[in-house]
């Protein structure tokens, strides 16, 4: 494998981590959706590059699915939902951008520390990509717990899925059928989440999931 191929793969995977960081501090709704679309675009580029250098044509299908479903359909749908809900002007108060970013940097360091020693036998590409994808997954989790808006939590969840795809393509492990079914389930999840969002809005007049917690019965 020549250096260029490796460097481009690194560039794309590293870019994905960078976009994950951008997701972390983005506090406007449309901005968040646009950056998520960028996230999915980077993933699909990365997968396509992997398909190119691994000579694995079925990965192109994976890349295409990622591009169509996650870079186009989901952001557009969410865009629509946000407009319908009328929350496109809300500015989410992200708690402590500084601390969140520092925690994110710590997570990236942690995943590199974990992944590099245990994958010593694997190829360079796989090692680096696994480390990056673990970072993306952890950053997505961090986003899910640091946000209170339901839409942002959904975006965090979807970014975790992007991290998984990166890991699977790098490890040359995930068969196409699994990828297709995962993509399909993401669409189903989107549908469910969309309905859920409207229901929350209808009931509680807010998108803040905090509001839900006051309405649970039976607390001792």
């Amino acid at each position: 494998m020549d250096h260029l191929a490796l460097d481009v793969a690194h560039f794309l995977a590293g870019g994905l981590v960078l976009v994950s960081f951008m997701l972390l501090y983005q506090d406007r709704m449309f901005g968040l959706l646009n950056i998520f679309a960028l996230h999915a675009l980077v993933v699909s580029l990365s997968v396509a590059w992997q398909a190119h250098i691994q000579l694995a044509p079925y990965l192109y299908i994976t890349a295409a699915i990622a591009l169509v479903v996650k870079a186009i359909i989901i952001p557009v749908a969410l865009h629509h939902i946000v407009l319908r809900l009328g929350i496109h002007r809300t500015i989410e108060t992200v708690v402590g951008i500084g601390q969140t970013m520092l925690a994110g940097i710590g997570l990236v360091a942690l995943s590199i520390m974990v992944m590099l020693p245990i994958t010593a036998e694997a190829g360079t590409l796989t090692r680096e990509d696994l480390a990056f994808s673990l970072s993306v997954i952890l950053l997505g989790l961090l986003m899910m717990i640091s946000r209170r808006n339901a839409v942002s939590q959904v975006i965090g969840f979807m970014s975790i899925e992007n991290g998984l795809i990166l890991a699977a393509t790098a490890a040359k492990g995930m068969p196409l059928v699994v990828e297709i079914s995962v993509a399909f389930s993401i669409i189903v999840a989107l549908t469910v989440v969309g309905i859920f969002l409207f229901r929350i809005r209808e009931r509680f007049d807010t998108m803040d999931v905090h509001a839900l917690e006051r309405f649970r019965g039976g607390q001792p």
Partner: peptide
């Protein structure tokens, strides 16, 4: 049993990070 969803997510996140730290 009466935690919030975010608290559960934080628990999952925290345990993943702790396990990874142990591994590292």
């Amino acid at each position: 049993q009466w935690w919030t969803i975010r608290a559960y997510l934080s628990l999952v996140f925290g345990s993943v990070v702790v396990l990874l730290l142990v591994l590292a």
